[in-house]
């Protein structure tokens, strides 16, 4: 069973005993023991997943790491958040998914216009099953709880991932004043309702809605 732990906050250490993890291609920074790295084509979801990923643009370069010892992963000194899944689904931008246990299934999910606004395409990556996943964020992620009657609105550029039974809706604060250039700067927001957790990073990606 692969053991995930954080070495500092920006390096993920995975202890492997002959088992397998899937990680972003090229994210290994060091390892001890014996490791084999195998590039998986098309995100490692098999042929169907490969075609889906190609079609949806939610492309992931994934490698399979197998061996005995400890393998260290990192990505551009971004902060790493460990998420333990027990049969739930984690929705995450493919850019932010660093490593998953081999027991987890990854796939793509349609997000519609929400993804469009966040500049990440119309699809997002779905991780489900039992095991650990490592999610990167630019700056330590703030985990926000959404409950009934307590909706949360998030800037699409700061959204990283979410879990739980959440409904996403794109809210537009843009009105006539946005068109004449007096907009509030937060014209695009994603509203989360339902119950679950949302991961937000203290930084904003460049987004389509960012400048209005």
């Amino acid at each position: 069973m692969a053991q995930f732990r954080l070495q500092g906050s920006r390096v993920l250490a995975v202890d492997l005993a002959g088992d397998t993890v899937k990680a972003r291609n090229g994210s290994m920074v060091a390892y001890t023991g014996q490791m084999g790295f195998k590039k998986l084509s098309g995100g490692g979801d098999g042929l169907r997943g490969m075609v889906t990923r190609r079609l949806t643009g939610e492309r992931m370069e994934v490698m399979e790491v197998k061996g005995q010892g400890t393998c260290y992963f990192a990505d551009k000194a971004t902060e790493i958040n460990l998420v333990r899944l027990n049969g739930e689904t984690l929705f995450v931008e493919s850019d932010n998914l660093l490593c998953t246990e081999a027991t987890l299934r990854t796939g793509t999910s349609f997000t519609g216009l929400n993804g469009m606004a966040s500049g990440n395409g119309l699809f997002t990556t779905k991780v489900e099953g039992q095991g650990w996943a490592a999610v990167t964020s630019n700056g330590p992620a703030v985990i926000l709880r959404v409950a009934q009657g307590l909706p949360l609105r998030v800037d699409p550029g700061a959204y990283v991932a979410h879990t739980g039974n959440l409904h996403r809706a794109l809210k537009s604060g843009a009105g006539w004043s946005t068109l004449i250039g007096e907009g509030g700067g937060e014209a695009m927001q994603v509203e989360f309702t339902g119950e679950g957790l949302v991961y937000v990073q203290p930084s904003e990606r460049m987004t389509l809605g960012g400048e209005v």
Binding site: R84, N86, E88, T163, G164, E195, G196, L197
Partner: peptide
């Protein structure tokens, strides 16, 4: 409510 347990 379907939220994962966080236990690093």
């Amino acid at each position: 409510f379907g939220a994962p347990v966080f236990q690093p």
